[in-house]
Simulated scan of single mutants.
Amino acid sequence: MTEEGGRLTETEAAVLAYEGRTWPGPGAKERAIREVLGMHPVRYYQLLNALMDDPRALVHAPGTVNRLRRLREAQRARR
C-alpha cells in the first residue's frame, strides 16, 4: 500500500482527509465512505487504525493523527 518515496497512497490520504472533516449527522460519514471511497466502513476503520501508527500519516496530517491518537489513548485508559 506504500507508494515509492515514503508518501501515502491516494486512498490513505483520502482516509485521513475524511477524518479531518465534520459530518452533518449519523450515517453520513459511512455513506460517503461507501459511495465516494468505494470501501466498506470496516475496511476504512482498519486502514485508519493502521495509519495512526504510520509515520507517513503523521507527516501528512499531524493534527488529525495526533487527535486520533489522543482519542485512542483516552479510550484505552477508560478500559
Rank of each mutant, 00 (worst) to 15 (best):
M52A: 09
A74Q: 13
G5I: 06
V42T: 03
A13C: 05
G25F: 10
E19F: 04
V42H: 07
T11I: 08
H60F: 06
E19V: 02
T11R: 15
Y44W: 14
V15Q: 01
R79A: 12
R76F: 07
E10G: 00
D54Q: 09
A77H: 12
E4T: 13
E12D: 12
E3H: 03
N66K: 11
V36I: 10
P24D: 09
G63K: 05
T2L: 10
A17R: 01
A13W: 02
A74G: 03
D54Y: 04
T9C: 07
M52Y: 01
V36G: 07
V59Q: 03
T64D: 00
G20D: 00
N49Q: 14
A32L: 07
L71I: 14
A77N: 11
E10F: 00
Y45A: 05
T64R: 09
T11G: 00
R56I: 09
T9W: 04
A57V: 01
R34I: 14
A14N: 00
T2W: 08
E73R: 15
G38A: 14
R21G: 01
T2H: 06
P62G: 10
G25L: 05
I33H: 12
R56E: 11
T11K: 13
D53E: 11
H60A: 09
E3C: 11
P41A: 12
A57D: 14
A57I: 03
V42G: 02
E4P: 10
Y44A: 04
E4Q: 14
G63A: 11
Q46W: 08
V36D: 13
D53N: 04
A14G: 02
T64A: 03
P26Y: 12
L58I: 03
R72A: 14
E19I: 07
E30A: 15
R43C: 09
R78D: 08
Y44R: 05
G38L: 13
P41D: 14
L51Q: 04
E10P: 00
A57Q: 10
E3A: 01
